[in-house]
Design a protein around this nucleic acid. Structure first.
Lengths: 205, 205
DNA sequence: TTGTCAAGACGAACCGTCTCGTCTCGTTGG
DNA sequence: CCAACGAGACGAGACGGTTCGTCTTGACAA
């Protein structure tokens, strides 16, 4: 998976073509939605043959995943870290408010909706998503929580995966199901109550 | 909207036909997924003309919503209530564990995945879903929490919608994004921490 | 020589609309 | 009381349009 052992004679893959396809795919899914995205449309707009897309991506899902991945900052960045000022609630609130603002950007909202819809139905695509986007992000969040845990700000018994879900799932759910308003105020309230539920059960006194 | 003022002469709608269409739609989406469901397939399997489906449903989304709604217990039931033994944590854990078990049933899992995927992308369908399925369920949950709030078991300042999200979103998220195991144990842990975060900040004594 | 590229032809599947003939119904007038 | 009538639901399927994923062609670069 890491490096292809193939001899690699013959013409090399054109990086510009790959970039053009991904950029066009992002635009199309942002404009027409996932159901409205067709490989033919992407090929035509990108000035590319259909076969070039089918050669490198198995289908719509993988294409959109790559397209969103390309536009997401800090996803594959190994050195990235969540803010750590010592104030856990303020740090997490900042991250969640930033998420809310990202989800409010119309283009990103529609593109991510397309990807999310595909993930709900396609188990294999969900696996790729977990591996390449959600997993790394979750690792950052767990690292920040672990530091708080070691500083005695969190229940030492708490499962960090559950903790991450408790803090971030409510906002994600509101967004994906449109079940309520998505405001910085709501984000801060969620963080406040989630952290209260994750704090050490017996106060240090 | 309440009562049709139309004279309604002519042949009446056949309830058996409606039921056959919805049952078939549920089976098809459970078997082939939302993307694999076509109106033609449902019509053929149900032994029904395509026009009969297009006459009563605007498209795939509304059809699948009705199909899932038909199989969901307690959704439109006005008299339904969440359990209330006085032990809030035990009551909510029972509900969430039941949800986990429902989501573990393969047929229901796949059908609900189809509906969920459609909802993420289609704002109008999401509105219908909120109105007919999520809204009523949320009302039951809020009623149970409100009673706990009045009994002094919950922070009187807490927004009940946020409270519902904090308790139920983590499990829903795990299911839809396949981001972690879905076990009764996890459900109980989520309820425990969520309620701790929603309790009255200063103990009554 | 080998593999990538753009272009597009190809048959299959499904779309949503439309038409047809049949089958219930409620209404109406004898 | 009871035929005749008309409105609307129903099964069946034809229709033109769109997209699917595969396949072919010829140019081109390593």
């Amino acid at each position: 998976m890491t490096t292809a052992p193939t001899r690699s004679t013959g013409r090399r893959r054109n990086p510009a073509t790959r970039a053009a396809i991904l950029a066009t795919a992002f635009d199309v899914v942002a404009e027409l939605g996932y159901a409205g995205l067709t490989i033919e449309k992407v090929a035509a707009r990108a000035g590319v043959g259909k076969q070039t897309i089918y050669r490198w991506w198995p289908g719509k899902g993988a294409l959109v995943l790559d397209a969103v991945l390309e536009r997401t900052t800090g996803a594959g960045d190994e050195a990235a870290e969540l803010p750590d000022t010592g104030d856990l609630e303020a740090d997490l609130a900042a991250v969640l408010v930033a998420t809310v603002q990202e989800l409010t950007d119309p283009a990103f909202d529609r593109a991510l909706r397309g990807l999310t819809a595909a993930i709900v139905e396609d188990a294999e695509l969900a696996r790729l998503y977990q591996e390449r986007l959600d997993g790394p992000m979750r690792e950052l969040k767990k690292r920040r929580l672990r530091r708080a845990q070691e500083a005695g700000q969190l229940d030492p018994e708490v499962d960090l995966d559950v903790a991450v879900d408790l803090v971030f799932a409510p906002v994600a759910q509101r967004w994906s199901e449109r079940s309520g308003l998505l405001t910085p105020e709501v984000a801060r309230t969620v963080v406040r109550h989630a952290l209260r539920g994750l704090a050490t059960p017996t106060p240090p006194r």
